[in-house]
Design a protein around this nucleic acid. Sequence first.
DNA 1: TCCTTCACATACCGTCGGTATGTGAGGGTA
DNA 2: TACCCTCACATACCGACGGTATGTGAAGGA
Lengths: 195, 195
Amino acid sequence: MTHGGRALQRERTRQALLREGRRLFAARGYGAVGLSEIVRAAGVTKGALYHHFEGKSDLFRAVLEQVQQEVARAVAAAADAQDDPWARLVAGCRAFLAAGADPEIQQIMLVDGPAVLGWSEWRALDEAASARHLAEALTALVEAGVIAPQPVPPLVHLLSGAMNEAALWLAGSAGPGDLADTQAALERMLEALRG
Amino acid sequence: MTHGGRALQRERTRQALLREGRRLFAARGYGAVGLSEIVRAAGVTKGALYHHFEGKSDLFRAVLEQVQQEVARAVAAAADAQDDPWARLVAGCRAFLAAGADPEIQQIMLVDGPAVLGWSEWRALDEAASARHLAEALTALVEAGVIAPQPVPPLVHLLSGAMNEAALWLAGSAGPGDLADTQAALERMLEALRG
DNA sequence: TCCTTCACATACCGTCGGTATGTGAGGGTA
DNA sequence: TACCCTCACATACCGACGGTATGTGAAGGA
């Protein structure tokens, strides 16, 4: 190669694989995309892919982690823009629904993620990325006495599941007012948790 | 073959494929099970499988439909045992959570289902089986004035998503009181929809 | 009895994920 | 600057898989 050192080129190749893998996985789903297609799009060969990742599912895992962290960052940013703990929760939920509207994120994070990595591993990644923020927000609200004292983990899964499905539904059969209606219904459910 | 007519034997073969396919898909996931394994377990060959189904994913679709209908039947039975519309909704939700506790049902219905068939087709099957009951129950409650007038579809997806995730979580990391806590939290959310 | 049909079994193919090995450009060392 | 080791890939190859094309023998009406 004409430019740069080994480390730079290495990083370029890795990023190209992640970028094209993400694009193809998102567009057509994990199962419908072959390794040969990914490496061709990235301008490398299978040797490069197996030099950087352990296999197809490991590449997908890296892509998923990237997607999860992007979503988590958006949610955290929306929450941090608010001061009131309750407003932080609502803003975070809204941001999650908005992020889930992206079909790329849906296919990778919600459709293929659990099936490719298995539910337990998917949950671990989700926990590390976004579910943790939700749990912290709810815990803060319980401690502050804003919502009734109750076990937080069930709430986390009920809410994140509700938002996952809602995001998926909204992107698929979106009527114009559905997003607003869904946010309204979600906030009504959140309201129910208050004392 | 020594016994029975062609139609009987045909049905026996089809049921054997469905039974073993369901068992293997549930135990190890769609991707990790090969056709050769299924037909060996069923005591037939690939020719038989392709005579009855269009391919691997079509067999899975048939298995999924079977699972969905079993769940829907259990939910409907629990709901029909109640007279009050509100009690019917709560009983149906409880029954769904109980049904989702089965790891077989989880893997097929919630993990592999969307990834193998695609989200839109999965939703169509879910709609035809169990989501329809939820929508009808909610519509009845709205019309009866038990819960506030509001668009029903967003509620359906928020609630079914919440219950799907909760069922998955309960089966995986089940603490002893988690089921009760989850049901309590869910019913608190349902309560929020009233008046 | 014959002959068609049907419910499979057998044999085969292309492609896929994965592996083993080759190779040539850095880049530190003397 | 000559050397050489390393590393970041490329090349060649393999077994297994999903899918297809074709063979076959029993069932059952005519």
